[in-house]
Nucleic acid binder design. Structure first.
Length: 427
RNA sequence: GCGGGCGUAGCCAAGUGGUUAAGGCAGUGGUUUGUGGUACCACCAUUCGCGGGUUCAACUCCCGUCGUCCGCCCCA
């Protein structure tokens, strides 16, 4: 048997309601803030990610699905994240020429070659947002506020917002040296991975999970003390705006994100219910990326939410919103079966959800299925009804039923809908 | 790439060396051939992920392999 590849999976109907709920919520909330959806390709030239994300990062170094294009010598990569592609599209389509800011969002699959574990897949899905052409701290705060809005609208609580500033390029270079000077004496107490990072990317030592390393990192000089006055001011304003918005946060001096393009604000929204992969939403400012990829100097800020992780959280909160029929249409006999589809279609066109039993089995069996389908009423179409173009409408809760002409039924669908809404007990 | 747990029906599982592999849910048929939700009855794994080995005897022990889950690394 051919199975789905490791790290990929099918999202089945029993789960799809959560996905649709997330997508609907995102569309609504971002729509109100007048963000526009953008759809970029799922594969791009490898160089885009190498330059955008950074050659030294793990994502580029060991996690990309890269292959050669058929017949060509072009190296192609399945996107491991969304920002690089959106920025490429922004530059290529000269969206910057429209002046002002561009507010964009996207959703879709991403690909990273990693060992699957809780909340991590090789093909996974993100919804992300990019605010391009805005240097102001208000941009950082708007973007964070929207992420919180989405998560709250979905009913999630107990989420924590961690925030930090990694400053601009010079701030980081300066801090890097300060940090290395501090860590050097403790070199032998660090875990193996962190020893390696001491030269490659010392900032990442800060968020090591090794307890010994964490203790050392706790007392390390803080990056915000190395920030230039302008960088510090930017960060302070962002924090003040969050406070004004009534958004709780905590400064996490050890928060440094893994992609090279981040500058200034970096943040993560985490949950305790996700196992080792606690981050539901991660993002920050990336003022240098557009220029790095060949566009004009453009400041920007954005985030990405991991859909799988969000679905895991939603599953703990509520049951899957399921698409159930309003009416279940039961039919038996040649003429009745012939009429049944037409009647179902006519009813569907009025806005009712009608499930048609196609089995042709005994009425008893069809009713049993109708009962389980979640419908509030069955429509019964047998030989007698077919003969005089009527149908039996049977309310399942009360058991009462009435014969009614098919055309009369079609004329009273509005009435039916209000009754069904009442019986279903929700919209 | 490294470390650990687990693979018995569509799902949840019991069985841990000895003739026919519990049970529950779901499904199908029936009691009820034009009326459901309850109840009762019947059917539903020649086989325990796969391959090899040990043994008179393997779902059970051993080796390998594949899959899956959890963790490290990294990230959403």
């Amino acid at each position: 048997m051919i199975q789905a590849l490791r790290g990929t999976r099918d999202i089945l109907p029993e789960e799809i309601g959560y996905w649709q709920l997330i997508e609907d919520t995102v569309r609504e909330i971002l729509g109100r803030a007048v963000y526009q959806e953008i759809r970029a390709p799922i594969f791009e030239q490898t160089a885009l990610f190498e330059r955008g994300i950074g050659e030294a990062t793990d994502v580029v170094g060991k996690e990309m699905y890269t292959f050669n294009s058929k017949g060509g010598n072009k190296s192609i990569t399945l996107r491991p994240e969304g920002t690089a592609g959106v920025v490429r599209a922004y530059i290529e389509n000269k969206l910057h020429a429209q002046g002002g800011v561009q507010r964009l969002w996207y959703t879709g699959p991403m690909f990273r070659y990693e060992r699957p574990q809780a909340g991590r897949q090789r093909q996974f899905h993100q919804v992300g947002l990019e605010l391009l052409g805005c240097a102001a701290p208000r941009g950082d705060a708007e973007v964070i506020a929207l992420a919180i809005d989405i998560l709250q609208a979905l009913g999630l609580k107990d989420l924590k917002l961690d925030i930090n500033s990694v400053g601009n390029q010079e701030d980081r270079t300066k801090y890097r040296q300060v940090l290395v000077d501090y860590l050097e004496p403790y070199k032998n107490d660090l875990d193996e991975d962190s020893k390696d990072r001491l030269t490659r990317s010392p900032l990442r030592i800060l968020d090591s999970k090794d307890t010994k390393t964490q203790e050392i990192a706790q007392n390390a000089p803080k990056i915000i003390d190395s920030l230039s006055p302008e960088s510090k001011k930017h960060f302070d304003i962002v924090l003040q705006l969050l406070t004004d918005l009534n958004i709780e946060y905590q400064i996490n001096h050890c928060l440094v994100r893994g992609l090279d393009y981040y500058t200034h604000t970096a943040f993560e929204i985490k949950s305790n219910d996700l196992g080792a992969q606690a981050t539901v939403c991660g993002g920050g400012r990336y003022d240098g990326l557009v220029k790095e990829l060949g566009g004009p100097e453009t400041q920007a800020v954005g985030w990405a939410i991991g859909m799988e992780r969000l679905v895991i959280l939603l599953q703990k909160l509520s049951s899957n919103p399921i698409n159930t029929p309003d009416l279940y249409l039961v039919s038996r006999g040649e003429a009745a079966e012939a009429q049944s589809l037409l009647l179902a279609q006519q009813l569907r066109q009025t806005g009712l959800a009608v499930e048609l039993d196609l089995s042709g089995s005994a009425f008893g069996k069809q009713f049993k299925r109708g009962n389980r389908s979640g419908a509030v009423a069955c429509l019964v179409l047998g030989d007698a009804e077919a003969e005089n173009n009527t149908v039996n409408l049977k309310w399942l809760a009360s058991g009462e039923q009435q014969a009614i002409a098919q055309k009369d039924l079609l004329a009273m669908t509005e009435e039916l809908k209000t009754k069904i809404i009442k019986l279903k007990g929700f919209d």
